[in-house]
Simulated scan of single mutants.
Amino acid sequence: MRIIFWLVLLAIIGGLAWIRLAPSDPAVWHVDPQVTADQDLASGVRRRLPGSETTLRALHGIILQTPRTEVVAGDPSEGRVTYVTRSLWMGFPDYTTIQLEDGSVEIYARLRFGQSDQGVNRARVLGWMNALNAQD
């Protein structure tokens, strides 16, 4: 019985380590957001707002101020950037891609692990959009 306890504990610790340390493959996450309309999804959110390269750069600056957020791939000068934002305690990664497309800035934020993000990505993206509007 004691061995089972330690095996289960080891499996839990290994799973948590994988969540925190799993690599972020740009080939998987740095993709076209394909935002055709605003959508609230169980696993994330899609938003589209009017904008230019200036808007994309401003949003990039706002996103980089978000705690535990870093660039996975891209740059505003390329027209697309993907970020990973990790939760405070468990380090769960959420990926957000922003892209300039036909006079609009597309935003696609989604989780990596699980079935539902409990609205975390929606709240984060709306916060970014509010900060962007406050700059105008």
Score class of each variant (00 low, 15 high):
Arg112Val: 06
Leu126Met: 10
Arg110Asp: 02
Ser87Trp: 05
Val72Asn: 08
Gln115Asp: 11
Arg110Glu: 01
Tyr108Pro: 02
Gly79Lys: 07
Gly114Ser: 01
Phe113Gln: 02
Gly114Lys: 02
Asp102Pro: 04
Ile107Trp: 00
Asp117Ser: 04
Glu78Lys: 14
Glu78Ala: 15
Tyr83Trp: 13
Val72Tyr: 11
Thr96Phe: 03
Tyr108Met: 08
Ser77Tyr: 08
Gly74His: 10
Asp94His: 10
Met129Ile: 14
Glu78Cys: 05
Gly114Arg: 05
Val84Gln: 09
Ile98His: 10
Glu106Pro: 03
Val72Lys: 13
Tyr95Phe: 15
Val125Tyr: 00
Ser116Tyr: 06
Gly119Met: 03
Gln115Tyr: 11
Asp94Pro: 09
Gly103Thr: 07
Arg86Val: 07
Arg110Thr: 05
Asp102Gly: 05
Arg110Phe: 06
Asp75Phe: 12
Leu88Trp: 14
Met90Arg: 06
Gly119Asp: 03
Tyr95Ser: 12
Trp128Gly: 03
Gly74Trp: 12
Arg112Asn: 02
Tyr95Trp: 14
Arg112Ile: 02
Ile98Cys: 09
Asp94Cys: 08
Val120Gly: 03
Ile107Gln: 02
Asn121Val: 01
Ile107Glu: 00
Arg112His: 10
Ser116Gln: 06
Arg122Val: 03
Tyr83Val: 14
Leu111His: 04
Asp75Ser: 14
Phe92Ile: 11
Gly119Phe: 04
Trp128Tyr: 06
Leu111Met: 07
Gly114Thr: 04
Ala109Ser: 15
Gly91Phe: 08
Glu101Gly: 00
Val81Gly: 08
Val72Pro: 10
Arg124Ser: 00
Val71Thr: 15
Asp102Leu: 12
Thr66Val: 12
Pro76Val: 15
Ile98Pro: 07
Arg124Leu: 08
Gly91Leu: 09
Val81Gln: 02
Ala73Ile: 13
Leu88Thr: 13
Glu78Asn: 10
Asp94Trp: 04
Thr97Tyr: 11
Ser104Gln: 15
Tyr83His: 12
Arg112Trp: 09
Thr66Cys: 13
